[in-house]
Computed example of a mutant assay.
Amino acid sequence: MRNLLVLLIVLGAGFVLVGMYVAPNQPQLRDWYLANACQSLDKVSPQICAPIRRADTNGSDKT
């Protein structure tokens, strides 16, 4: 039971960290987080999706 709880905590933390550090640089992942995850993550903390929104408004995937 303890192992399952630790696994869920690690997966949740990984999901948040990917959203904060990886997704802003990956256009497809950024779009998925904006469409599906940020609505729920904003209830926890608006700072989680802030880097994704900044990267989306900056248009970092356009060259």
Results as ranks from 00 to 15, higher is better:
residue 1 M to D: 07
residue 1 M to L: 04
residue 2 R to L: 13
residue 2 R to Y: 12
residue 2 R to Q: 11
residue 2 R to K: 08
residue 3 N to R: 10
residue 3 N to I: 07
residue 4 L to F: 12
residue 4 L to W: 13
residue 4 L to E: 12
residue 6 V to M: 08
residue 6 V to R: 11
residue 6 V to Q: 09
residue 6 V to A: 06
residue 7 L to W: 08
residue 7 L to R: 06
residue 8 L to D: 05
residue 8 L to E: 04
residue 9 I to W: 09
residue 9 I to K: 05
residue 9 I to S: 14
residue 9 I to F: 15
residue 10 V to F: 14
residue 10 V to Q: 11
residue 11 L to H: 00
residue 11 L to C: 07
residue 13 A to G: 14
residue 13 A to K: 03
residue 13 A to D: 03
residue 14 G to Y: 02
residue 14 G to N: 01
residue 14 G to V: 04
residue 15 F to D: 04
residue 15 F to V: 05
residue 17 L to Y: 11
residue 17 L to F: 12
residue 17 L to M: 10
residue 18 V to M: 01
residue 18 V to H: 00
residue 18 V to G: 00
residue 19 G to Y: 00
residue 19 G to R: 01
residue 19 G to Q: 02
residue 19 G to F: 00
residue 20 M to D: 02
residue 21 Y to N: 04
residue 21 Y to D: 00
residue 22 V to W: 08
residue 23 A to D: 02
residue 23 A to V: 05
residue 23 A to Q: 01
residue 24 P to I: 12
residue 24 P to Q: 10
residue 24 P to F: 04
residue 24 P to G: 03
residue 25 N to I: 07
residue 25 N to Q: 15
residue 25 N to V: 10
residue 25 N to L: 15
residue 26 Q to T: 09
residue 26 Q to A: 08
residue 27 P to N: 06
residue 27 P to S: 14
residue 28 Q to D: 14
residue 28 Q to E: 15
residue 28 Q to T: 13
residue 28 Q to C: 02
residue 29 L to H: 01
residue 29 L to F: 04
residue 30 R to M: 09
residue 30 R to K: 09
residue 30 R to W: 15
residue 31 D to P: 03
residue 31 D to M: 03
residue 32 W to D: 02
residue 32 W to F: 15
residue 32 W to C: 02
residue 32 W to Y: 13
residue 32 W to E: 04
residue 33 Y to K: 00
residue 33 Y to P: 01
residue 35 A to S: 15
residue 35 A to V: 13
residue 35 A to P: 01
residue 36 N to F: 14
residue 36 N to C: 13
residue 37 A to I: 05
residue 37 A to H: 04
residue 38 C to Q: 13
residue 38 C to V: 05
residue 39 Q to M: 08
residue 39 Q to W: 13
residue 40 S to D: 14
residue 40 S to P: 05
residue 41 L to A: 10
residue 41 L to C: 03
residue 42 D to A: 09
residue 42 D to T: 12
residue 42 D to C: 07
residue 42 D to S: 15
residue 42 D to M: 08
residue 43 K to A: 12
residue 43 K to C: 05
residue 44 V to M: 11
residue 44 V to K: 00
residue 44 V to N: 00
residue 44 V to Y: 06
residue 45 S to E: 02
residue 46 P to V: 15
residue 46 P to N: 08
residue 47 Q to N: 13
residue 48 I to A: 06
residue 48 I to H: 03
residue 49 C to F: 12
residue 50 A to I: 01
residue 50 A to W: 14
residue 51 P to V: 10
residue 52 I to F: 08
residue 52 I to D: 04
residue 52 I to C: 05
residue 52 I to Y: 07
residue 53 R to F: 02
residue 53 R to D: 12
residue 54 R to N: 07
residue 55 A to T: 06
residue 55 A to K: 06
residue 56 D to T: 03
residue 56 D to C: 00
residue 57 T to L: 09
residue 57 T to F: 03
residue 57 T to Y: 02
residue 58 N to M: 13
residue 58 N to R: 13
residue 58 N to E: 14
residue 58 N to V: 06
residue 59 G to M: 07
residue 59 G to L: 05
residue 61 D to T: 03
residue 61 D to F: 11
residue 63 T to D: 09
residue 63 T to W: 12
residue 63 T to R: 09
residue 63 T to C: 10
residue 63 T to I: 14
